[in-house]
Amino acid sequence: MHYSAVLTILAVLSCLLYRVEACGCYGPQSCTLKNDRCNGQPASSIIATLTALETSAASLDPRADAAGKDDQCVCDCCAVCNTCSALFSGCGADNIETDIRFRPSLKPLQLNKPIKPLTITRKGNTTENLGLWGELCVDGNLPKGLEFAYNAEDQTFVLQGTPVEKARKEPVVVIAKAGGGVLQKLKFKVTVK
């Protein structure tokens, strides 16, 4: 037996004995909206991950009947690996935290006046680094001239720019991807006078 095969077997046995939890991108049809593995095992189990690797792609049919959407394989089991449209459709809902806000707080904005950048941070009096990364998913329309930018130093996103159109309580929802497979969700309304 080859040395690498022995190491692989030992690694798998260690995982089985100690129930190592992991999150990696498993594929856009590896879980249901209920976060059940498409092979019926819990999404967070490394055993399920190993079993899913053996599952044939043909058994993951995305054309299933819409009536049983909660049971369809439409999500990636690792929440942060889902597309924005999948997240807004309910994928990863078990991993969404809502304890974030803007610092300073978002107030009505003035037309054609640059805003002081608003940082996404945890609620409360903290400067804790959120560990956000990658794509920021935005549902809703920001007024023209405003945008989100990534701040690599603080590992978060900031709302910045100069609003060039009026807006009246435009609802916006953002979902940010964080380390450990966690998602951060922020709902807010933008008013430009």
Rank of each mutant, 00 (worst) to 15 (best):
S4L: 10
S4G: 09
L7W: 14
T8Y: 11
L10E: 13
L10G: 05
A11R: 02
V12H: 00
L16T: 10
Y18L: 15
E21N: 07
C23V: 05
G24L: 14
G24C: 12
G27R: 01
Q29R: 11
C31V: 07
T32D: 01
L33H: 03
N35I: 07
R37Q: 07
R37E: 08
R37P: 03
C38N: 01
N39I: 12
G40S: 06
G40C: 05
I46D: 07
I47C: 02
I47A: 05
T55E: 12
T55G: 09
S56W: 09
A58V: 12
S59L: 15
L60S: 08
L60I: 14
D61R: 07
P62K: 02
D65K: 04
A67T: 15
K69A: 12
K69W: 13
K69I: 15
D70N: 15
V74F: 01
D76W: 02
C77A: 02
C78I: 02
V80C: 02
C81A: 12
C84L: 06
S85P: 00
L87Q: 00
L87E: 00
F88S: 05
G90E: 03
G90D: 08
C91H: 05
G92F: 01
I96G: 01
I96T: 03
E97A: 11
E97V: 10
E97R: 08
E97S: 09
D99I: 09
R101S: 13
S105G: 09
K107G: 11
L111F: 14
N112A: 10
P114F: 13
I115R: 01
I115Q: 03
K116Y: 10
P117T: 09
T119Q: 08
T119E: 07
G124K: 03
G124I: 08
N125W: 11
T127K: 08
T127L: 12
E128G: 11
E128I: 14
N129M: 11
G131Y: 01
L132C: 09
L132D: 05
L132H: 04
W133T: 14
C137K: 02
N141G: 05
N141W: 06
L142M: 05
P143I: 04
K144V: 15
L146I: 06
E147N: 11
E147A: 13
A149Q: 15
A149V: 15
Y150L: 11
Y150P: 00
Y150V: 07
Y150S: 05
A152G: 07
E153Y: 04
Q155W: 02
V158I: 15
V158D: 04
Q160F: 09
G161M: 05
G161L: 06
V164S: 08
V164E: 09
E165A: 06
K169Q: 14
P171L: 04
P171H: 04
V172S: 00
K177L: 10
A178Y: 01
A178G: 04
G179W: 09
G180Q: 12
K185S: 10
K185P: 01
L186K: 03
F188V: 03
V190K: 00
V190R: 00
K193Y: 15
